[in-house]
Write a protein that binds this DNA or RNA. Structure first.
Lengths: 185, 185
DNA sequence: GTCTATACGATGATAGAC
DNA sequence: GTCTATCATCGTATAGAC
């Protein structure tokens, strides 16, 4: 792992624990094991770290939903794939996902606009999948916007789960069951 | 409205917009229309404001769920009442709810422990309602913990909704439909 | 209760030696 | 690339006059 990778890795953990604004570059440097000023040989600013973390997650979600939507599956199968995509992205980098979920509002104006555009792109495809399911009769009637937000929101706590707490249940299967039941006709 | 009320009101708005750590007492004083030092004639510290906001919301939820659980209703009716409770608390003070949801981790050790105890109390009752429904056959099998977290999480985006965006749908009714469908057998 | 003045530690970031 | 030294600013909070 390069020093730069280690900085981003520790930053994701630090920001996820204390929040972006309450995290200092001095904290971060200490965790990386260098002096604060040395961070700036690898990154331009604190905000650049946040941007990299948030944009990278957002891009993963957009790429994932596009790939799912391109395949020839019915709407419910697409939603199931969306749930598994969410779980898989979360499992891969839980700290980054916490930052992505909770700290994006601290992006500066330019990054924030890019971020919102990516989110818009994701939400538009998501809603079109739900509407497709409503037209085919697989998904119950109701506001697709409310369903979409509720589903996304329902998925956003899963980073809290560690291996131990899963007991007899597989988290992915349980979440698929929950989400599909909530929107099926 | 007293000055103290106005401080808490503006603080809830400010913290909800910028997050607790990124909000300064100088910001807050400006919004209230006084000098920063004058805030301290009404409150002891910045953290005291956060504590008041978070604890007051937490208490509303605990009081609400206790009152619902005491009534003689079946499990699904209790869950429906929980959804409406959540919507009603959120509608009453959306800014405080955002702070309660997103900023509680910045409470100091003592407040944090109290906060977590209240959350624990809420979650224990919630899970017991779900289990009661599983035993009576109204609620499908599966992890009650996963269901509870998903339901709570699904409800936590509703503060984003303003009057305009509701179109032809009643948010409360849509959320009741979503949550009940997700857990029914 | 509100003000002016201020204490004083923490903040993000830079300059320049090595 | 890392360090020491430092800067300018902003952070919460207090003292004391009115």
């Amino acid at each position: 792992m390069t020093r730069k990778e280690s900085i981003f890795r520790e930053a994701a953990l630090l920001f996820s624990e204390k929040g972006y604004s309450a995290s200092s570059m001095r904290d971060l440097a200490e965790r990386v094991g260098i002096e604060p000023s040395s961070l700036y040989s690898h990154i331009k600013s604190k905000e650049e770290i946040l941007k990299e973390i948030c944009m990278s997650c957002a891009q993963d979600f957009v790429d994932g939903i596009k790939s799912i939507d391109n395949k020839d599956r019915d709407a419910l199968a697409k939603v199931e794939a969306l749930v598994r995509l969410h779980l898989s992205i979360t499992a891969e980098n839980p700290n980054s996902i916490i930052v992505f979920n909770d700290e994006w509002k601290h992006l500066d104006t330019n990054s924030l606009n890019l971020f919102k555009a990516l989110r818009q792109e994701y939400e538009t495809i998501f809603k079109s999948i739900l509407k497709e399911g409503q037209e085919s009769g697989q998904i119950r009637t109701g506001s697709s916007g409310i369903m979409m937000n509720s589903v996304i929101s329902a998925l956003s706590w899963v980073h809290q789960v560690d291996g131990r707490s899963s007991k007899n249940y597989d988290l992915s299967d349980e979440m698929v069951a929950f989400v599909l039941a909530s929107i099926k006709s």
